[in-house]
Simulated assay, not measured.
Amino acid sequence: MADYSVTKKNDGDWQAKRDGASKASSVHSTQADAARAAKGYSANNGGGEVRISGTSGKIRAKDTVKPGNDPRHIKG
């Protein structure tokens, strides 16, 4: 499983970064593009959790990518 985070960089771009990696997997001009990429990377690596941070740096959404292990067991 592969967990990813989507965060805003100092230059205003958004990055999709695998947890524990030293460099971003990809950099995007929008948060939506970075989130879509992170979900794709996670799915290609056996699923996992994607955490999406807002402009303040606080996590605003978490998505479990199949076949990851969703701890809440509810759809949505």
Score class of each variant (00 low, 15 high):
H73Y: 00
G54N: 02
S25Y: 15
K62I: 09
S26D: 12
G46M: 05
I74S: 01
A37D: 12
A38P: 03
A43T: 03
Q15N: 11
R60F: 08
G54R: 02
D19P: 15
D70L: 00
G40R: 02
G20M: 09
G54F: 01
T55A: 10
G46R: 07
K62E: 10
G76P: 08
A2V: 13
D13S: 14
D63T: 13
K62V: 13
D13M: 13
A38F: 02
A61C: 01
A37N: 12
I59T: 07
Y41H: 09
D33A: 11
G76V: 04
I59G: 04
S53W: 03
A32G: 06
A38H: 01
K66P: 04
A61V: 01
N10G: 15
T30Q: 08
D19A: 15
V6N: 03
V65T: 00
S22I: 14
A34D: 03
K9N: 07
K66W: 02
T64S: 07
T7F: 12
A43Q: 05
R51M: 06
I59W: 04
A2L: 14
D3G: 12
W14T: 07
R60K: 12
K62S: 10
G20R: 10
H73R: 01
T30C: 09
R18D: 13
G12S: 08
D19S: 15
I52F: 01
R51S: 04
V65F: 00
D13N: 14
A2C: 13
V50K: 09
K75T: 02
Y41G: 09
A21Y: 11
T64K: 09
A43F: 04
D3C: 10
G12V: 12
M1Q: 14
G48L: 00
T55F: 09
R60M: 12
K9Q: 06
K66L: 01
V6C: 05
V65L: 00
G54E: 01
K8L: 06
A32W: 05
S25A: 15
A35H: 10
I74H: 01
G54K: 02
K9G: 06
A24M: 14
Q15R: 11
N45E: 13
A38C: 03
T64A: 08
I74D: 00
G40I: 02
Y4R: 10
W14M: 06
V50E: 08
S53K: 03
G12R: 10
S53F: 04
K75P: 02
G47F: 01
D19M: 15
A21F: 13
Q31M: 04
T55G: 08
S5K: 14
Y41E: 04
Q15G: 13
N10L: 13
